[in-house]
Simulated scan of single mutants.
Amino acid sequence: MTDRRPPRPSSVALAASPTLERLLRDNPLLRVISTSCPPGLRFEGEIDLCSRDLLAATLDEAVQFGNGDLHVDLTSVTFIDVAGIRMMTTAAKTLSCDGRRLRLHATPPGARKVIHLLGWETTPGLMHCIGTML
């Protein structure tokens, strides 16, 4: 059986979506930076109700168009709510279907505690990495 899925462009091409471009431009609370080494994303600011659409669009684009594991650096995240954490676990599950992983770097202590309390540390495709992505 042949794989009929279209080839995936580089995760650096995240800004290809007009919706994502608008969300990136219009959200003052959350900054998203595409990284190339390793390929992934760096979030800066707050992940909450006000930035939820941006987080969802960014993760969707990265999962759909990226290759290999997706690295997410949370070093500069000052707040993340449970819904934001849940979006990341959902992205990890989707990535695991393709044999890929979501690698969280420098997860804030509060977020790690929520992940543990809700049993999400066993989410397929979710991996915690120590330190930043440097």
Rank of each mutant, 00 (worst) to 15 (best):
L102H: 06
P9C: 03
K93F: 12
R31S: 13
A16K: 06
V77E: 03
G131A: 06
G45E: 11
T58E: 03
V32E: 04
T89Y: 09
V32H: 01
P18Y: 05
P124V: 02
D69P: 04
G110I: 06
R31T: 13
T2R: 07
P6K: 00
S96F: 02
M1S: 10
L41G: 08
L59C: 02
R101A: 10
N27I: 02
A106T: 09
D73W: 03
M133V: 14
L29Y: 14
G131Y: 07
P28N: 08
G40A: 10
V72M: 07
T107N: 02
R31E: 13
S51Y: 07
K93E: 15
T90K: 13
L54H: 01
E21D: 14
R4N: 15
D81A: 05
M133D: 13
D48I: 01
R5H: 06
P28E: 06
G68V: 11
W120N: 04
T94Y: 04
E21W: 12
C37E: 15
S51R: 06
L41K: 10
R100A: 10
G99P: 00
T35A: 14
A62Y: 10
E21C: 15
A57G: 02
V12E: 15
A91Y: 00
L49H: 12
S17L: 03
R52K: 13
S17P: 01
R52V: 08
S34Q: 14
H71I: 05
H128I: 12
R42Y: 06
S10C: 12
T75C: 09
G99A: 08
T78H: 08
R42F: 09
M88I: 00
G45S: 11
K113M: 11
G99N: 03
I47V: 14
D69K: 04
S96A: 10
C50E: 15
H105Q: 01
A111Y: 04
K93A: 15
T107A: 11
L24W: 06
S34I: 14
K113V: 12
I130G: 14
S76T: 08
G119I: 07
T78F: 05
L49K: 08
D48R: 00
T19S: 03
E21P: 12
D69R: 05
L29H: 14
L102P: 05
L95E: 08
G125W: 06
L117W: 06
V12R: 15
V63Y: 01
S96Y: 02
T75E: 13
D53I: 10
Q64A: 07
R25E: 08
G119R: 08
R25P: 03
R52Q: 15
L74R: 00
L24C: 01
V72N: 01
V32K: 02
D3K: 07
R22N: 00
L74W: 01
R8E: 05
E121P: 08
R25A: 10
T122V: 11
P39H: 15
G125Q: 03
I47Q: 11
M127F: 11
T78D: 07
A56N: 13
